[in-house]
Simulated assay, not measured.
Amino acid sequence: MAKAPKLKNNPQIVTANHLVRGDVVYLTAAAAWSRSITDAAVAPDEAAAADLLAEANAQAARNIVVAPYLVPVEPGSTPPLPVQFRERIRAQGPTTEESATKAA
């Protein structure tokens, strides 16, 4: 099985899930959480990414979000475009239709 590429040299954003709503959220430059990847703070290097992740982990400890982690994004992309396909899907929102979910 092929290993995932190391992407530490890419700019990065922080994502998590909101504890109460369960929504995918992104850490903003104001240390708030947004459901829109457009609002995500982009860390240009590893040191800045570590700072963002430390803030996210502090908020996780206060039970605001669950399991924050870094997501590599394409350099220069506006809005941030995740490198990994899984993260692109998460950024676009749920992949199920509301009516199908209610019918089940």
Rank of each mutant, 00 (worst) to 15 (best):
A31C: 06
E74W: 05
L53N: 09
P82T: 05
A58D: 13
A29R: 11
E46R: 09
Y26A: 00
A32Q: 15
V73W: 10
A4G: 05
Y69P: 00
D39E: 13
A32K: 14
I13C: 09
T38K: 11
P44Y: 04
L53F: 07
P11K: 01
D23S: 12
D23C: 05
A100G: 15
P5M: 07
K102V: 09
F85I: 06
I13S: 02
K102D: 03
V42Q: 10
A54N: 15
P94M: 08
V66K: 12
H18T: 01
P94E: 12
E97F: 11
V66C: 08
R62M: 10
A67T: 15
V71D: 06
Y26I: 01
I64W: 08
A41Y: 07
L70C: 06
M1H: 13
A58C: 03
P5K: 13
L7S: 04
Q59V: 07
G22N: 08
Q84V: 09
K8A: 13
T28E: 15
A56H: 03
R21N: 14
Q92E: 11
T15M: 14
K102H: 01
E97V: 14
A49L: 01
P94N: 13
A43N: 04
N63H: 10
A41W: 04
A103E: 11
S36I: 00
P72H: 05
P68Y: 08
A56N: 02
L70R: 15
I64T: 12
A67Q: 09
Q84W: 00
L7G: 01
A56P: 02
P80D: 05
G93A: 06
A58H: 06
A91S: 15
P80K: 06
P82G: 04
A49K: 00
A30L: 11
E55C: 02
T28C: 10
G76N: 11
P79R: 03
A61C: 11
K8E: 15
S77I: 04
R90I: 00
V14Y: 03
N63W: 02
P72S: 13
Q12M: 15
A48H: 03
A49D: 02
I37V: 15
A91F: 03
Q12W: 05
P11T: 04
D51E: 14
G76I: 06
Q92M: 10
P80E: 04
V25Y: 03
P80L: 08
T96D: 02
V42G: 02
V42C: 08
V14F: 06
D23I: 02
P82Y: 01
N63T: 05
A30R: 13
V66A: 11
I37A: 01
V83M: 13
R88I: 07
P79Y: 04
V42E: 04
T101E: 08
A4S: 13
A58L: 10
S36L: 12
V65P: 01
P94T: 08
L53G: 07
A32V: 06
D23F: 09
N63V: 00
P44I: 08
V71P: 11
V25R: 05
S99W: 10
P68F: 07
A49H: 00
S77V: 04
A50D: 14
Q59S: 07
P11Q: 03
Q59F: 08
A56S: 11
L81R: 14
I13R: 04
V65N: 02
D51P: 00
